[in-house]
């Protein structure tokens, strides 16, 4: 049953763990996330209101989202694996779709456009 194609498939199908980040990277990432969370919480206590409050919070949220997705879920390293961008592509499409669609709904309600 050893066929050429499946032999190569063997190399290909297993995206290599060698490409995954090291434990150290994971720890650093985690510290980064923890710091961001701390800043977020602190920011919410500054007594700001309106965009000054909301925009940075949203930005930090997005950054955290990207970090978890990129490092912990390996999207960033998967990009380097053969065709690994498909993971990013499907998931990314979903995220973009969801954000666009729901923002329109929200806008339609909030501002009666």
């Amino acid at each position: 049953m050893a066929t050429t194609a499946s032999d190569h498939g063997h190399d290909v199908a297993h995206d290599d763990h060698e490409h995954h980040p090291t434990a150290k990277t994971y720890w650093i990432t985690f510290v980064l996330l923890a710091i961001l969370t701390a800043v977020e919480v602190a920011w919410s206590y500054l007594g700001l209101s309106g965009p000054a409050l909301v925009v940075p919070l949203i930005l930090m949220m997005v950054v955290k989202f990207l970090i978890v997705g990129g490092v912990f879920m390996h999207l960033q390293t998967d990009l380097k694996v053969l065709n690994g961008y498909w993971f990013t592509l499907t998931f990314g499409t979903a995220v973009v779709l969801a954000v666009c669609v729901y923002i329109i709904v929200f806008a339609a309600f909030r501002w009666d456009i």
Partner: peptide, 18 residues
Amino acid sequence: GWGVWAHHMFVSGIGPLS
């Protein structure tokens, strides 16, 4: 197909821009 849903809601009172 994801950007047209409100055409089912033209008379539901959504705003003019929508």
